[in-house]
Design a protein around this nucleic acid. Structure first.
Lengths: 343, 343
DNA sequence: ACGATGTATGTAAAGGTTTACATAAGGCTT
DNA sequence: AAGCCTTATGTAAACCTTTACATACATCGT
């Protein structure tokens, strides 16, 4: 019972008075074994407290029951909820997860490949939009992989994300409904698909409202708080002020709010601001940010489900799964102020 | 080269024209092998791109190179930075980390034991103050373990945390220096060691300032935002108002601030508030929270270092490592307002 | 010149599992 | 009752390492 060394399949076999092959079958292919023997085996397992040695199993099978999750930054507020979804789904199917963070360092990413060479992981979940490994070199023998949030590279890797266009459309429609006509769009890098798609939602919303695009109030940045702040300064410099700021993500929106606050303006009285992501901070900042929620736990769950499917079937059923983002109305949006309307 | 199956030690041996034993030795005990052969082996490894199969190695050695990290909630804002520290240190020593979250469910915690039975993990890092497994049953065959933040149970498991007493003392001293004399302490559960210790710092600070303890303004809660809010209501009901709230953690402090805000008070004009932890939100709330920082990355690093030591030596050098917490001054503390001083 | 000592390498077993193949027994068909 | 199919179980090989033990050879002291 409380032996020093854990019970092996042989211990079970001895007690159940069957061969080890039968024990293995009783566990993994119960229908192939007679009811009476299955019972004996189960009893023996209960007595010994046997758990199958995952190492030996993986060695024999040539694949492990672990999934490697690689993210550029574990501390990213978007990360942890995704992880919950990933982990729950994995566990439900007998898989565990392994976490690696690359800190945006390709070299470190590369080191994670050893988990696959050495059979320590069977599949890969990628958070970064790029492969964390040297590109061409490895694409050939890449393990079954699924991207989260963003499509990966061009490697034909399926991914699970959110319908960015629809989400952006919801944000812009809210602002339009409040009466805003001059709505700035503060983006991040044009190379990111999320930017392109959210921008599409913005453009479409404006177009549907009959408002001609005004490129003077469409800015690019890098998605950080600092970049949101900078965007505000730029607009004040140019004297092309909008009445509302629609931001590509919450970080940028927070930056915008800080920038506006520093200039003495009140939100939402003087300007309205929307974000995208609904990071945990969004509810704590002042005023609480109206934003678009990414269903993170659901994304994680779907991504893992897709990967598990990939692992068993070999081919993905879908190459892109987009979940529906929700508008979360808080306190950073109101009708444009009289003053600004006059402009 | 780009074979479908990864190279094994035998491939290397064949190319280097030595036995597999020599290859293994060349890798793990290089000094035991002649220079010339070591060179040949290294070349062969380079040619084949060989990586040792961790499964086979673990099976043979009877231990793995993975560390299981169990936390009640991966989404906890305290968690991710710790993880960075843990992971960096682990990787530096050839270990990887495995993450599990129990969601405060003992049953789920129990399931993680299989990682040890099956040799999938060599050691354990515990975030929860309690063992996530059935208590008495398992203590005997518990793997090498280290606690983080809090001592674990009574199982003689070493842990790495922060000097709570010193941190609390810094907070209370700041409030005293600002001129506060009536300082409330909002705690969480008395069963938590962190509570006891932070309370000790509070008591000591008051004592040093010659202020007699006033139990009417020392409250208990459960460490949540809601509980902070509730504490404010209680104090208003009883009409025993302090001029400052010293909170056992940031969540409670945020709750206190929300509660005070809801009653129309301004912080820090009407009341001062301090927290403990310096969670990421602390800087985003309004006003930004003055709090005590836990050096999270450092804690993680130390905890992992301690565990690794445990794994090799068998016995821990220290049973408790406390790091120094820092006061982070932001905007939630000022001198008590005239009005309140009169009381 | 011989045994002793030391160094470098090879041989083979062991670690726990899964599974192809072999065997045995029972039930059908004719 | 003979042959055949089906079902249940056992035997043994394979997965890839590490390492105790054996072997071979060179070096050294006497």
């Amino acid at each position: 019972m409380s032996n020093s060394t854990p019970a092996t399949i042989e211990d079970v076999a001895r007690i159940a008075e069957v061969s080890i092959a039968t024990v293995s079958r009783a566990i993994h292919m119960p229908e192939k074994v007679a009811n009476s023997t299955r019972l004996k085996v189960n009893q023996a397992i209960a007595i010994t407290g046997y758990t199958t040695n995952a190492m030996a199993r993986s060695l024999r099978l040539g694949r492990s029951n672990m999934i490697l999750v690689v993210a550029p930054d574990i501390g990213d507020p978007n990360f942890s909820n995704i992880l919950v979804g990933l982990e729950n789904e994995a566990r439900a199917h007998g898989y565990g997860i392994l976490i690696g963070h690359t800190q945006n360092d390709a070299q470190r990413g590369l080191e994670y490949l050893k988990f696959f060479n050495s059979n320590q992981a069977a599949g890969l979940i990628l958070f970064t939009g790029i492969l964390p490994f040297g590109h061409q070199t490895m694409t050939a023998r890449l393990p079954p992989s699924v991207g989260v949030f963003e499509p990966v590279f061009n490697g034909g890797i399926p991914y699970v994300g959110v319908d960015d266009t629809e989400g952006a459309r919801k944000a812009v429609d809210l602002l339009l409904a409040e009466g805003h006509r001059k709505i700035a769009f503060i983006g991040d890098s044009r190379t990111r698909l999320a930017y392109t798609r959210r921008r599409m939602g913005y453009d479409a919303g404006l177009d549907a409202a009959g408002i001609p695009p005004d490129t003077r109030i469409v800015l690019e940045g890098d998605g950080t708080i600092e970049s949101g702040r900078h965007a505000v300064e730029q607009l004040f410099m140019r004297d092309t002020l909008p009445t509302a700021f629609m931001c590509v993500n919450d970080q940028t929106a927070i930056g915008v709010m800080i920038g506006l606050g520093a200039r003495g303006y009140d939100i939402p009285r003087d300007f309205s601001v929307t974000g995208f992501d609904d990071v945990p901070q969004a509810v704590f900042i002042s005023p609480p940010l109206t934003t678009i929620r990414q269903p993170r736990t659901a994304i994680g769950k779907q991504a893992m489900a897709l990967l598990l499917e990939l692992l068993s079937d070999g081919r993905p059923t879908e190459t892109e799964i987009l979940l529906r983002p929700d508008l979360v109305v808080r306190n950073s949006v109101s009708a444009p102020s009289r003053n600004w309307l006059k402009r």
